[in-house]
Design a protein around this nucleic acid. Sequence first.
DNA 1: GGCATACGAGTGAGCGCTCACTCACGGCTA
DNA 2: TAGCCGTGAGTGAGCGCTCACTCGTATGCC
Lengths: 199, 199
Amino acid sequence: MGEESVPSDTKAAVAGAVRQALAEHGYARLTTAKIAAESELSEAGLYYHYDSKDEMVVAFLETAAGFLRRELDALDAEDPETRLRQACDHLFTDRADTERRGVDVAVMELLAHAPHNETLQEPLLALEGDTIDALTEILEDGVTDGTFDESVDPRATAAFLVAAADGATGFYLSLGMDVGESLPDAVGRYVDSLLATAD
Amino acid sequence: MGEESVPSDTKAAVAGAVRQALAEHGYARLTTAKIAAESELSEAGLYYHYDSKDEMVVAFLETAAGFLRRELDALDAEDPETRLRQACDHLFTDRADTERRGVDVAVMELLAHAPHNETLQEPLLALEGDTIDALTEILEDGVTDGTFDESVDPRATAAFLVAAADGATGFYLSLGMDVGESLPDAVGRYVDSLLATAD
DNA sequence: GGCATACGAGTGAGCGCTCACTCACGGCTA
DNA sequence: TAGCCGTGAGTGAGCGCTCACTCGTATGCC
């Protein structure tokens, strides 16, 4: 309750504060005091708008879902192959933007905690589902127009790619990039293998 | 300190307790009381052997690394293609064994927390590195004997597969299997694409 | 006796969340 | 215009609880 009535700029501010606190300290050490410190509200002020810490986290997830979806929708290439390569670049290697990176860390944290916290499951499912949907669309387009082989299952392939991207993010963030340095090559090769065999 | 001197059966018992507590409650709610409850020691008894909670977690990671390595070493097929498919089956779909599943959840929890806890990074790197090494070996064998295409980069491909497997585990455990149900097909297709083009 | 192993019973710090209260501001009346 | 009031927004202090970790003691074995 209460969540719908939160002014949208306040919600955005809280979401940003949660993202930063989460990226910096992790879910296990995420405290309402830290969220308050990152925002311009006091702890009690947060509780004026939200009934629980989890509600603040969910507010972040909803905001993040919009953020990621907008980024994927902005891919401008016209042919499916380039669009897919852009999307993969985006999912696997774009780590420059600190906001984007923060979102990745935060989402990873929450994904790991989801099995033990039902509140988080639905918004996370929506977030990941959106990404898979976006990739599925690209792949469907490409299968229809003959860019990708007709044996490609768009949804299965999209899920595989997003899973791989999530795992790669984990590698990158948790263990340093050493392990995943050569990953982009493997991804590019994978995309190659989806193309219709030209003859 | 102290860790090396822990009797190996005690260490195994503590590792098992950490795994179960971690799988059940997650890192954020992992408490020494819960570890004690899952083991046959009291909380104070645990602190007789280990100086901190983190040391107990590391003991679990070391045990888990051995467990996973032994499982991958046990793959018995002789040709690289079958060995790789066995390994993928193992990484992506074997969720029956409760111990194996528990290890997966626990490792995922710790991986997500690693960016904020230096103690965990090295043992996790060792664990994931072992898995990548095992796959790399299979792929190298296959490239050498002509099973896989010579353009395949064994290490990059292995890293990609392990990242995908980690991500798939996250999907499966956090969001229910719905999203990842069709994944095995995509994985199989990926392995197909690595094979040398027969002509 | 002395050492290794173990436990019950704490302890202080940190946590989520609540409560009593303040403040700025917009509308109403005279 | 001046004065009053209602209300959304925000706060500092602190309660009740959980946590990682400790201490004094007890048991078995040489």
